[in-house]
Amino acid sequence: MHSITADASLEHRIHLELPAARGGDQAAYGRIVRLSQNATTAIALAITRDVQASQDIAQEAYLKAWQQLGRLQNTTSFLPWLRQITRNLARDHLRGRRERLVAGETAELAIAQAADPDGCPMQRIVDDETGRVAADLISELPDESREVLLLYYREGGNSKQVAALLGLSDAAVRKRLSRARRSLREDLIARFREFAESSAPGTAFTLLVTAGLATFAKPAAAGTLAGVAAGSAFGGGVAGKAALGSAGAIGAAGAGLLFGGLTMWLCRTMIARYAETEAERRAILRLYDRWFVGGGVVALIVMLPVGFFVQRGVLPSVWAAAGGIALMAIFNHPLLTSLPRLMDPLLARDAARDPRGAARRALAYRLMFGSSGLIITNLGVLGSMLILFLRNA
């Protein structure tokens, strides 16, 4: 039996994980994501020239592939199949962006100000410039060389590994690398390398995709997921699970964390689609990340340790109750103030253009972010606190 070379080992390792992944092994699929995520995000980035969009697209590609993995008959076709899914999603993203009407500069500034009235104008200028530099660097390259050069630097300069991930010969990779280097001025080569390396997805990307798999997997035992529903609404995603840890259900908190991560990502993606300009998109994501992602991190850092010590009787139950109330305040504030100011004009614009489709989208939005979502979230947190007191009575 011939030996596997070091350069081909990455592709070989992916193929070794596929049988278990096809059988529903989420950990095996997570390892596939970790091994191939540089390639998928590079493909999406080469098409969109937008780092955040490229990671969103790659995440969607992995979740779509997971849903359809059982249909894959030949494991050697997995990487070409995944690449095609990624390219299709990236092109759909560009097509959708081109079809949107561009709002005026005044509207952009008003939306950005509503989302972040205290924001630093200088930071917005830096963000704009960073995005433009990234797009300009990628645009300097021939179309066929973008994926290769991005992945080459992300994979530590291993051309054979790039060839395996992109389904090319090593000679073809080297030819495209040479053409790409000739296209860029010498002073831009170092900048492009730094950009490629710094924009590569990390461990958080893998964890986020793996968390999303729980939505499509078989449900766990009722005892393990006893409290997941309490935090399944937006805002309750991470906070609700952390509060359930306070009730003594550490296992439920862990399972809820995965489900909550997916919930937050899906909500983030959903509201970003209302944006028609880059300024609108940045304003929405800045508000979301500041309050909800940041609030989720606070919940994890604070509530899981509190739950652990309450469960063991080191801390009184009132500590967990106080933490739950504080988290309710953190998530309720933007849902009642900042988010409506930002999103109401966008929802109204959507309704004016497509009343029938907008009605369905608005219903989903209200369940996640509106009064219905707020009620469900608060009931989830209050319910977890009630469980806490009943268990410790």
Rank of each mutant, 00 (worst) to 15 (best):
H2F: 03
T5N: 05
A6G: 00
A8N: 10
E11S: 07
H12I: 09
I14Q: 00
H15K: 12
R22V: 07
G23L: 14
D25V: 03
Q26C: 06
Q26L: 05
A27T: 14
A27W: 14
R31S: 12
V33S: 04
R34E: 12
R34D: 13
T41P: 12
I47V: 15
V51L: 06
Y62T: 11
L63M: 10
L63W: 03
L63Q: 07
K64L: 12
Q68A: 11
L69G: 04
L79Y: 06
R91Q: 13
L94N: 11
L94F: 01
R97Y: 01
R98L: 03
R98S: 12
E99W: 07
A103F: 10
L109H: 13
Q113D: 13
A115C: 14
D118G: 09
P121I: 02
Q123I: 11
D127R: 13
D128E: 09
G131T: 08
A134D: 14
S139N: 11
S139A: 14
S145W: 03
L151F: 04
Y152S: 10
N158V: 08
Q161M: 04
A164V: 03
G167M: 11
L168T: 09
A171V: 14
V173Y: 07
R176Q: 05
E186F: 15
D187I: 14
I189R: 15
A190C: 11
F192L: 11
E197C: 11
E197Q: 11
E197M: 13
P201H: 09
T206E: 10
T206P: 02
L208N: 13
T210F: 02
A211S: 15
A211W: 00
F216L: 06
A217S: 15
A221L: 10
G223E: 15
G223S: 15
A233P: 07
F234P: 00
G235T: 05
G236C: 05
G240E: 04
G240D: 07
A243Y: 00
S246V: 04
A249E: 08
A249I: 03
A252Y: 00
A252N: 02
G254I: 06
G254E: 07
L257K: 01
M264Q: 04
C267W: 01
C267S: 12
R268T: 06
M270D: 02
I271M: 03
A275V: 06
E278Q: 14
A279K: 09
E280L: 06
G294E: 12
G295Y: 01
G295E: 02
A299R: 00
I301M: 11
M303A: 08
P305W: 04
F308A: 15
Q311S: 13
V314G: 06
G324P: 01
I330W: 01
T337V: 13
R341T: 07
L342G: 07
M343Q: 07
M343F: 03
L347E: 09
R349H: 15
A359S: 01
R360I: 04
L363T: 07
A364M: 15
L367E: 12
F369Y: 04
F369T: 01
G373W: 00
I375A: 13
I375K: 12
I376F: 09
G380W: 02
G380E: 12
V381T: 13
L382D: 07
G383F: 08
L388T: 09
N392D: 05
